[in-house]
Design a binder for these strands. Structure first.
Lengths: 236, 236
DNA sequence: ATGAAACCTGACCAAACGGTCAAATTGAGC
DNA sequence: GCTCAATTTGACCGTTTGGTCAGGTTTCAT
């Protein structure tokens, strides 16, 4: 496995369908133009699902397209008919979950009550960890490896979003609603890490407590503990 | 890459040196018996170091013994002279850092002052994240993948240690020194996740803040923020 | 100095991997 | 039922990878 991922080469030839010339290969379905078939939709979805499972378990380097294909219930060749390379699958999976991933932070509202807003943010993040632990682990794996694919997003839109929300928190501090010692960015990191921990380190949590977030009682316990401790630490 | 790691097979033949029979292979230096040579000590150390670097960057599946050998400044063949398989290197690296990894938690002392003890624990963990981020990332990678190698430790000694320290925290609560709503295990998770975040998600932290824990100022900031928030959240 | 053990190397191997290709099969509109 | 594009397959290929092996070189105690 190449350490620095190979170039994406998203569409090696990009052949338009209605060209009638060259009788040669016409591979790759609807490469971005035109509406996808029902079969395409179904199979792409299966591939993304299986890809998420494999990539989150073994990382980019440890995953194999053969196993992904098996997980998606199709042959390796057929998988490669829908996505030309392993890297493209990886990118597609990542892109597919990125929005959902960042959504909760976007909802932090200056005009709201800090206590309610932050508690809600923690709950939202914990909910995602509970319901989508594989996505959490995929992101963790990606960042662990130096974020070869999502670094642009981190430096771009995420950075913007974070500085925006840091301003919100700073406004709350200025309004005397949060303790003056609160550091906005570090508070965001604290919430991220604390909530994602239950997904990313699920194995460890399970080994130590015998429970995961799938256990409603346990999830409620974690939620209460995090909300109480973090809010208790930052509310004025 | 096999998903469930292949059997360790720590020493395929285990040939004792002074056997004088079979003129064939006598590979593998001091397989657990007898004191190691100076060269052995040096090379094994180099291999473990390079292995930590590779495994933490690419995970078990993504790392290659060839790159590890290159990182250790020796040929692949020579590396395999010291460690028979990739899995054995991985286990050795993991084992080599395990003690250091768990040490800070062991120091939590019931007789001490909770504020000082917890603050110290946070500082210790943050120090390790700052000075040994690769070890942190290796553990994260291992746990992410389901802890195939360290699960026994998690279920065994770590579980014991955690329940021990949870009792310590519970004693502090009973003594009225911590808020009654504090959940010991979740507090431990909170401290782990918050401190390790700066190592495991270093790339993200760097992209968002332009800093890492290597920056003394930033580290002090993180430390102050974590200590203030967490202690503020749990102290009575 | 010498001999044995320790150390090191390059050539080699089988399996696994990512990816290609020609051809067979299926499906949908007519 | 015909036709043509969409879909699926299995055989195949070059590379990478983990690991073996026979033999060469260095180290070190005597």
């Amino acid at each position: 496995m190449s350490p620095t991922r190979s170039t994406p080469k998203s569409s090696p030839l990009k052949r338009k369908p209605g060209l009638r010339s060259a009788p040669a290969a016409r591979q790759v379905p609807a490469d971005s133009d035109a509406k996808p078939t029902r079969i395409q939709e179904r199979n792409r979805a299966r591939i993304l699902e299986a890809g998420l499972s494999e990539f989150s378990r073994f990382g980019f380097g440890g995953a194999t397209i053969e196993k992904i294909a098996a997980g998606a219930g199709m042959s390796k060749s057929n998988l490669l008919y829908y996505y030309p390379t392993k890297t493209v699958i990886y990118e597609a999976v990542l892109e597919h979950i990125l929005d959902t991933w960042l959504a909760p932070l976007r909802m932090l509202d200056v005009t709201g009550d800090p206590a309610a807003e932050l508690a809600d943010y923690i709950r939202q993040k914990l909910k995602i960890s509970a319901e989508w632990p594989e996505a959490s682990r995929l992101f963790a794996s990606e960042i662990l490896q130096g974020a070869p694919q999502v670094k642009p997003v981190l430096q771009g839109s995420l950075r913007l979003l974070v500085s925006e929300k840091a301003a919100v928190i700073r406004a709350w501090i200025a309004a005397g609603k949060l303790k003056p010692h609160v550091e906005p960015v570090h508070l965001i990191f604290l919430i991220w890490s604390a909530t994602q921990h239950y997904a990313d380190f699920e194995t460890q949590v399970l080994a130590l407590t015998g429970k995961t977030l799938k256990d409603e009682t346990f999830r409620g316990e974690a939620e209460a503990a995090l909300v109480a401790t973090i809010l208790g630490g930052v509310l004025a």
